[in-house]
Simulated assay, not measured.
Amino acid sequence: MVGNWSVQTSGGSCRVQLSSSPALDLYRASASGCSNQDLSKVNAWDYRDGEVYLYQTGGSVTARLRGSSSSLSGVLAKSGAPLSLTR
């Protein structure tokens, strides 16, 4: 899952990078060019129970995604809006 991802949402597209660097009990992440306020604050991620979780500052879950190492799909936690990540 580590690497650069292109994000597609109903509000447009942006980029998210998932790092293998630890950040407490999670891994570091960063977002760029995201118009969605929640996505723009993504700073950590985790993989558990077959799902990728994206977190924002403060520890709130931004999104939950399922899929493969080349394509993930899921929803934004607050709005329930769909999003997809591709390599």
Rank of each mutant, 00 (worst) to 15 (best):
M1L: 11
M1W: 13
M1H: 08
N4P: 08
S6R: 14
S6T: 15
V7F: 00
V7K: 00
V7W: 00
T9L: 06
S10P: 00
G11C: 03
G12N: 05
S13R: 12
C14I: 03
R15M: 09
R15Y: 11
R15W: 11
V16E: 03
L18E: 10
S20K: 14
S21P: 02
A23G: 06
L24N: 12
L24G: 07
D25I: 14
D25S: 13
D25G: 04
L26A: 14
R28F: 14
A29I: 07
A29K: 08
S30W: 12
A31I: 08
Q37R: 07
Q37W: 02
D38L: 09
K41E: 13
V42A: 04
N43A: 05
N43H: 06
W45F: 02
Y47Q: 06
R48N: 01
D49C: 11
E51Q: 14
V52P: 06
L54F: 01
Y55F: 09
T57Y: 02
T57E: 05
G59V: 09
S60H: 14
T62H: 00
R66W: 09
G67D: 11
S68M: 03
S68Y: 03
S69I: 06
S70F: 00
S71G: 05
L72M: 10
S73L: 11
G74D: 12
S79Q: 12
S79T: 15
S79A: 11
G80Q: 10
G80V: 11
A81S: 13
P82S: 14
L83M: 15
L83R: 04
L85N: 08
